[in-house]
């Protein structure tokens, strides 16, 4: 049923979002420990887009929501390179229909998701979903770490690959784009001194439950994204949306 819906959605209109997948409730042990008193979180169920949002889907959004066109967007919502590779306000680059949309700021990503009745996933939701995905795929720690380091070696090549959109399970969690999350800016505090983890040192160990390469790769994803501004846009940073259960 789900698969049929997915196919139909794609056939009827490439712009239509495929059916989001349900991420079941369960325990989640964060690899990056932001709160030293909490080792395990009870994650409620939620829904997440199976794939990152595509250029075609994003075009549909800006067509309906003028405020987010590249020629209309307020300066405070982007860094000057929003949708930089679009030839015109309502034209995506040729052949980009099924690629993950990039050059979108955090503000724009949130607005897109809100327009779909959703929101950006939280950091914990996204990472929990990533673990679910690794289990589904049978992805070993080593294979997972290698995939992430491989991505970091040539992120542009990964982000420009087409996607199949008729997935009934999570797809492309680690091999297309890095993805915005709602609370991407990390911080920890020691008393009244905030430490924004913007990173002035090689001190990852105090945030990690172990120093294996899989945990490190995950930390690196958190940490580097934490150094973006909400206005930042790059060719390797996209997003997918989350939805509350009805």
């Amino acid at each position: 049923m789900k698969k049929w819906l997915g196919v139909m959605a794609w056939v009827v209109a490439a712009q239509a979002a495929a059916e989001p997948v349900t991420i079941p409730a369960g325990p989640y042990q964060p690899i990056v420990v932001l709160d030293e008193t909490v080792a395990e979180l009870a994650m409620p169920a939620f829904k997440l887009d199976a794939t990152p949002v595509t250029f075609a889907q994003y075009l549909d959004f800006v067509t309906k929501h003028e405020k987010w066109r590249k020629d209309k967007i307020a300066a405070i919502f982007h860094d000057g390179h929003y949708l930089a590779n679009w030839p015109a306000a309502l034209t995506i680059p040729e052949g980009y229909e099924k690629k993950a949309v990039t050059q979108v700021s955090w503000f724009a990503a949130r607005a897109y998701c809100a327009a779909q009745g959703g929101r950006l996933p939280t950091l914990n939701e996204w990472e929990y979903a990533s673990l679910v995905y690794r289990q589904q795929q049978g992805l070993s720690d080593q294979a997972y770490a290698q995939r992430l380091f491989g991505w970091h070696s040539n992120p542009t090549a990964y982000s420009l690959q087409d996607m199949e959109l008729n997935h009934s399970q999570l797809a492309y969690m680690h091999d297309r784009v890095n993805e915005w999350v709602d609370d991407f800016q990390l911080l920890i505090t020691a008393g009244d001194e905030t430490d924004i983890l913007s990173g002035s040192c090689g001190d990852s160990a105090r945030f990690l439950t172990d120093t294996g390469e899989a945990s490190y790769a995950t930390f690196f994803r958190y940490q580097s994204r934490s150094n973006y501004r909400p206005q930042s846009t790059t060719g390797t940073l996209g997003f997918r949306c989350a939805y509350d259960m009805e």
Binding site: D35, T37, V38, L186, L187, I188, T189, D192, T194, I196
Partner: peptide, 15 residues
């Protein structure tokens, strides 16, 4: 301003 709700109901936040 960065902030995060802690499990104990308090918020970590930038000043």
């Amino acid at each position: 301003i960065r902030y995060r709700l802690r499990d104990d109901g308090n918020f970590d936040h930038s000043n």
